[in-house]
Write a protein that binds this DNA or RNA. Sequence first.
DNA 1: AATTTCTTTAACTTTTCTTTAAACTTTTTT
DNA 2: AAAAAAGTTTAAAGAAAAGTTAAAGAAATT
Lengths: 225, 225
Amino acid sequence: MEKILIVEDDNNINQMIYETLSNEGYNCTSAFSGTEALLHAGSCQFGLIILDLMLPGLPGDEVLKSIRKNSNVPVIVLSAKDELDTKVDLLTLGANDYMVKPFELKELKARVLVQLRDNKMDNKDNMIMEFNNLKYDMQKKQVSINGKNIPFTVHELKIIELLLRHPGQVFSKNEIYEYAWDDYYIGEDKTINVHISNIRQKIKKVTDIEYIETVWGLGFKLATV
Amino acid sequence: MEKILIVEDDNNINQMIYETLSNEGYNCTSAFSGTEALLHAGSCQFGLIILDLMLPGLPGDEVLKSIRKNSNVPVIVLSAKDELDTKVDLLTLGANDYMVKPFELKELKARVLVQLRDNKMDNKDNMIMEFNNLKYDMQKKQVSINGKNIPFTVHELKIIELLLRHPGQVFSKNEIYEYAWDDYYIGEDKTINVHISNIRQKIKKVTDIEYIETVWGLGFKLATV
DNA sequence: AATTTCTTTAACTTTTCTTTAAACTTTTTT
DNA sequence: AAAAAAGTTTAAAGAAAAGTTAAAGAAATT
């Protein structure tokens, strides 16, 4: 089920889009300001973003610019009739499509479909997860902190991915094992500990920040400071 | 210089578009009926087609359907305000974008730009992909590094093409096989390894740069550093 | 039909990653 | 405060994946 982020400060319009797309089977999330949008977009889990231009907090074009820094998720921009100049720039800049308000919901549905279809071909897994300067480009299987790449092995990446998906949440060794190895946990096992240790060492070469925190008796989590 | 086909029966509108896009530096061709459009499109030399819906000879949606049978050249559909239902179908069918008449030329230019930009990667015809001094002329099926030609075989070329299309992205042997052989992967197989090895050896004769990077347990990617 | 070229298979080597084991440290419990 | 439990680290053995080479098998060319 594709996830769609709806960024629109007008409550009515936001809800209207939300209901329409939810009825189409999409998993929608609403945001009502530019800053809120960035918070959501940061975790980079969306297959499509619908973005209004006039937003409190941070204007839509700034939001778009920021999103484009580390993602090419398709973005459909919404705008009022009198903002044509900006719109043109937006298209050349990085928006994938735009619609002039008021628009018909039928049209919206069609455009959403087009963007998701187009995107499916090119971006297999174009997700860049980010947390506190730690970026994980899932396409390139590349983790970097402050821009410095760190070579991780497959299992290490999987562990990082799990923690990154739910910052702050504690995962037991059992859970980590089953996620990263996609297999049942064979009890008594120090394997996870070694891997966590290795991950920490690799990170230490690049930064002093402790990303992985131990929760005694329970497991590990991404430190949320 | 990109070639654009303009299919529009209204002489004025056709000319207007023609002049606008010509001024932008595009190489335009005008067609005034659906059948004429197909004649032009058949030769498949266009980087973009602008297609009106109401056409003598053959309606625009039929033209689009016909074009899509053997090409995925980007198509921007033009339509009058009252044809929304059809439009929606068009988008889901195969049009890349559409505009409602009357439209502003500024907007047209922007949308043309978007389509051509998006397509540049996908348009096989007359494409030269380049990455870090490695050039791949898809027409000539010729790869060169720093101007020195390297003779690659069909499968080798396909592998290079896949990697070149998405620099940095990791592809599993499975994915590589299915792309380059256009067939299902029969599991346990060292074929890909041998081919990768052969590609590397050929490259090594010309440069010391390692273009293909191994990602242990996952696959291969074009080295982006 | 013969020759050349390309692809695949197979045997072997090398590299890299994973796990085990053991010594050590920290935290919790008694 | 000592013992037990849980976690950390290091090194080494083991396993898995990738690399290489040569030869056999297919395709394509001549």
